[in-house]
Structure formats: C-alpha cells, structure tokens
C-alpha cells in the first residue's frame, strides 16, 4: 500500500495549574502519529510516556459521553472521535491543543462547565407534564411526532457549540446554542405542556434567541450534527406562532423584511432601520447615516429601486405567509 500511514506532528499543549502557576504556558511534543489514531490516543501517549501530570477528561471513548471536548487550532472537537489525519488535512502538522475555554480552566485541558450547566438548567430541559403516578397505559409517541424533535435529542452536552459561540463569548447572559437546542427539544415534544414558559425564557432580550449573530458556527462545530441554529430559527418561529413576540427592535427587524419585500421586492435598508428602531431609536444611527450619505451609500425613499414583476412577489407574499405580527 502506498498510502501514508504515519506522520510526524508537533503538538503544542496548553498547560495551567491554578495551584502552582500564575500564567498558562505550552508544552511542545513532536510525535509520529498513525492514520488510526485519534486525538485522545495522543493525549494518552503524552500522559503515559512523557508527562503524567497532563490533565484532561476522558470516559466513553466512542463519542457519546461528551466529556473529552477540547479545541485544536481553535476548532472544538471530541478528542475520542477526531482522527489526527483529518486534522492534519485541515491544519497541517503543527497542532495546538487547548481547553474549550481558556478563561474557565481548572487544570490543563479541564474546564469548569458551570456556566454551561446553569444555562442548560435555565431553559427547563425536561418534560413538563401531569402524568399520573400509575398511568393505565403508556404515553406513546408516534414516529411522525418523534421526527418533530429534528434530532435535537442527539445532543451529548459536550459544550463544543457553547464554547465556540461568539455571541456568548461577549454577552455572558446569552443562553447559547446548546441550551437553545435543549429548549427546542422539549418544546417540540408532543407530551410537553411547558412550551409557553420555555418560549418566554428564550424570548427575553439579551439572553434569548434574538441575540444570535447567525455565524453558523454551532451548526459547523457540533460533533453530533444537532444543528443548533436550525433549532434557534424554529424557536423564533414558535415565538411568532404563539403570538408572544414582543413589539421590540429584534422582532420588528425580522418582520420588517416582509414589509419591505411586499412594497419593493427588495429590502429598503433605511426603512428597515427606522421601522426596527422606531422614530426615536433611529436617531442614534444618524451620525453613521450622514457619513454614508456623503459617500453615496444611502438611497432616498423616492429613489428606492424595485424588483421587476413586483405583482408576482406581492401575490406570493399574500398566499404564502403563515404568520401574523
């Protein structure tokens, strides 16, 4: 066989022990890795052959317990599931191994996931249902109804999305993709009776779904293909469908697109900002708007371009709309 089955890789590993170190540092190891090895094999080799003090979490070794999640060159992975050769294809042979969040390190690659579990607990991640203590029959869920969970129940709470979410990194109130996926998982369950309360939680400003920056990283990074942002979109939809969407800048920003498209086919950018912010709120955008105007970047209302066949667009909006605000 011609295929390369072994390759030399340089690993830089994040080290920090809050009991003995002021600052984190990196240890470097150059090792030959084989095409069969996953990252956890390398961590084990370093611990067993080079430095027994290296600390990391491991348990199931087959991608189901979610405990061994770490970052390699900034990409969150499950150490037990990620083959070195796949990572070499992306990053080359210099790999930096770090904890999921360097701010939350207890020791080396081990972090305190307290914030993750608090966010998770915050969305009522359980079935809310009055079930008799001794029910006469099982509460069966049909395959059709089970499909409504949209694989949200595949989440293993590894934290890969949570600690890769840029909105959460800046705004610590933000509930984050993993907990939103959990909120959706139980809200989409036909047996659940706590949907409304859960939707109120994820509908709050600053903590709720509206602060998502739509970077799609949670969809990309999830090792179980839960696709959290798809669930975030569904939570947005459920908020509108349940008629609990508040009349605020975030909701008007979403609805404003429908208004604009109905009028012009295209988005009226200036009007979207005015409608979203309101007549007073919009004033804070005036300084930037003036600069943009001076550079020919603002189209005045009477010059607003329109899509051809606008009647067709209007007809489709009338016949295809599924919600009202």
């Amino acid at each position: 066989m011609d295929a390369i089955t072994s390759q030399q890789v340089t690993f830089k590993i994040f080290r920090f022990n809050e009991e003995t170190d002021y600052l984190p540092f990196y240890n470097t190891y150059t090792l030959n890795v084989t095409h069969e090895e996953v990252v956890l094999d390398i961590l084990n080799r370093i611990k067993w052959d080079h430095d027994g003090s290296l600390s990391y979490r491991r348990s199931c070794r087959h991608g189901i317990c979610g405990i061994c999640s770490i970052k390699i060159n900034g990409k969150a992975i499950l150490a037990c599931k990620s083959r070195l050769f796949d990572l070499i294809k992306i990053f080359g042979t210099d790999l930096t191994i770090e904890p999921l969040s360097t701010k939350r390190v207890i020791k080396d690659l081990i972090i305190d996931k307290k914030d993750f579990w608090e966010k998770h607990a915050h969305v009522n991640p359980y079935l809310v249902s009055d079930i008799e203590e001794t029910p006469a029959s099982e509460h069966l869920v049909s395959p059709h109804d089970a499909e409504k969970l949209n694989e949200a129940d595949y989440c293993i709470q590894c934290g890969a999305c949570h600690y890769s979410c840029p909105a959460l990194a800046i705004n610590e109130q933000f509930i984050g993709p993993a907990a939103f996926a959990a909120a959706f998982r139980f809200s989409a369950d036909v047996r659940d009776e706590g949907v409304l309360e859960r939707l109120h939680i994820v509908n709050q400003e600053a903590q709720g779904v509206w602060d998502c920056v739509k970077c799609m990283e949670c969809a990309e990074v999830c090792p179980k293909e839960v696709n959290p942002i798809e669930k975030i979109t569904k939570l947005h939809n459920m908020i509108f469908e349940a008629h609990i969407a508040k009349n605020n800048v975030a909701t008007r920003h979403a609805v404003g697109f429908a208004h604009s498209i109905a009028k012009h086919g295209l988005l009226d950018e200036g009007e979207l900002v005015r409608y979203s912010e309101g007549n007073i709120g919009v004033l804070k955008h005036v300084p930037v708007a003036l600069k943009m105007f001076s550079k020919g970047k603002i189209v005045l209302p009477w010059n607003m371009p329109k899509a051809d066949k606008l009647d067709e667009i209007k007809k489709l909006i009338k016949s295809s709309s599924t919600v009202k605000f």
């Binding site: 739509k214 979109t233 947005h236 939809n237 509108f240 909701t251 920003h253 979403a254 609805v255 697109f257 429908a258 604009s260 498209i261 086919g265 295209l266 988005l267 899509a307 051809d308 066949k309 067709e312 667009i313 489709l316 909006i317 295809s320 709309s321 599924t322 919600v323 605000f325």
Partner: peptide, 23 residues
C-alpha cells in the same frame, strides 16, 4: 436577475420560514 426579490437576509425566516423559502 432583475425579477429577484430580497433573500430575507437570514432574518425573514425567523418570522416566516415558509415565505422565505418560497421567495
């Protein structure tokens, strides 16, 4: 494509996913 409408810019689908798909 002069007939094309706005794509909804990842926000219209939060309000009305089906409408966004149709457009």
């Amino acid at each position: 494509l002069t007939e094309a409408s706005c794509c909804g810019a990842s926000h219209l689908q939060d309000y009305d996913d089906f409408l966004s798909l149709v457009l």
